[in-house]
């Protein structure tokens, strides 16, 4: 998550400017006491009203609760995590005219890294330093597609991940799991 600061610019301008483009005049008295609305309790009531509205009109979808409950099985206390250290989405300069560039990702753990390229065709990658490995493509708590990396560490998967995915690598010595990512 080292690039988090790089993203601030996206919304930075919204927070620098007034942003209150809501048709209510800025001349509105700031001492809300005049209209009887300066009060914590009144603010709290209105916030509660919004909370009730959100619970009815935009609640957490039920199936998402279920998926998050099941995610408990994704605890991998013994595996090492390979963190995302390069993501073309945020770290590469966009190429003009290329509408659907492949997503290039690098995950790194101490002494081991995995390069992955995701296209609409599927997923290709290489374990570095080159070595054989058994690889599972995880796409949620219950599904995994097993692959094998050849002795140069290369592997391919014919289907692109649908939704969030992670790779679980079993090398001779250990288990490494990549950080979960939305493809």
């Amino acid at each position: 998550m080292g690039d988090m600061n790089g993203l601030n610019g996206l919304y930075g301008h919204d927070f620098d400017e007034d942003g209150f483009d809501d048709g209510v005049s800025d001349e509105e008295p700031e001492d809300g006491a005049a209209d009887g609305f300066d009060d914590g309790p009144d603010c709290d009531l209105l916030e509660e009203e919004l909370r009730r509205a959100a619970a009815v009109l935009d609640p957490v979808p039920t199936e998402l609760y279920r998926i998050a409950m099941e995610a408990f099985s994704l605890r991998d206390l013994d595996a090492r995590i390979a963190e995302l250290t390069f993501d073309s989405l945020t770290d590469a300069i966009p190429v003009r005219g290329v509408l659907d560039p492949p997503r290039m990702l690098t995950f790194s753990a101490e002494g081991l890294s995995v390069d992955v390229e995701v296209t609409s065709e599927g997923l290709m990658g290489q374990v570095l330093p080159p070595q054989t490995a058994r690889i599972e493509v995880l796409s949620g708590p219950r599904t995994a597609a097993p692959l094998t990396a050849d002795d140069l560490g290369r592997f391919t998967c014919d289907a692109p991940p649908a939704g969030p995915f992670a790779l679980r690598l079993r090398t001779g010595a250990e288990v490494v799991v990549t950080e979960w990512l939305r493809a």
């Binding site: 998926i67 605890r75 995590i81 949620g140 969030p164 939305r182």
Partner: peptide
């Protein structure tokens, strides 16, 4: 997808 990614990563 974002919701799921976040919870998967939290579990992990």
């Amino acid at each position: 997808e974002v919701y799921q990614t976040v919870w998967f990563r939290f579990a992990q």
